[in-house]
Design a protein around this nucleic acid. Structure first.
Lengths: 116, 116
DNA sequence: CAAACCTTGACACGGTCGTGGTAATGTTGT
DNA sequence: ACAACATTACCACGACCGTGTCAAGGTTTG
């Protein structure tokens, strides 16, 4: 058979088996199934899992953020509505601090680091 | 002076004063300040607050989702990285369930509704 | 058939989100 | 000057995220 079981996939991707199931739940990487229900990870899924890990590591992004981006990608109305709302901000450049979200997001991070 | 205080803005927008401060923290609506530090909400901010409320009500979206979208809008590298990752999924249409995220997101909702 | 896998479901736990409150202190308006 | 506002900094609380673990049961393989 071509494809790895969940534990084999876990070893080659670095994700725990638990997280592989969770990632599947969130709709980001969906492996195939054998007739009896076992998950089968093919080369494509393994690659996606590895690049997903790299993506989360490279930027300060959560799994749920990627899931939300997927939702944005597939829901044009939502994408339009949010973008419209955001672009209304850009009309008053004097009141936009482009790194506002940065300070906000970094607050989490700093609290995390300080806890160590 | 042209502009409402936080409590006046609270009344005309429906957001609590507490939430107006929180929304400011998240970088979504930043009012001006008087010399002594009081927040001043002008017509533009009030409009943004109202449309924000409508946006959150119309779609099933959280404040943090809008904040993340703002981050996406201002960080081209992040946007490109995520989009690239997502478009790799689209290459295998047989394994993409476009309503995967929907089931996932609805699970929250159902649990909320059941709690009532 | 027994060991070593797999499945789903549940409990747990620290951390974050969204939200309300309170306390201590400063500002404004009459 | 005093009431009615504002500010920031905290504590609390339920729900959700990411993650581990464990139980009860089905499957594959030597």
């Amino acid at each position: 058979m071509d494809g790895l079981t969940i534990h084999e996939a876990s070893e080659t991707t670095g994700w725990s088996a638990r997280m592989l199931r969770y990632i599947e739940q969130s709709g980001l990487v969906t492996p195939g199934r054998t007739g009896s229900g076992y998950r089968i990870y093919g080369a494509a899924e393994l690659q996606r899992l590895r690049t997903l890990k790299e993506l989360l590591g490279r930027f300060d992004v959560a799994l749920s953020d990627v899931a939300f981006s997927a939702r944005l990608d597939s829901d044009a109305a939502l994408r339009a509505a949010i973008h419209e709302w955001l672009s209304a901000t850009a009309e008053r450049p004097d009141e936009v601090q482009p790194d506002d979200w940065l300070r906000f997001e970094q607050a989490k991070h700093e609290r995390l680091l300080q806890a160590a």
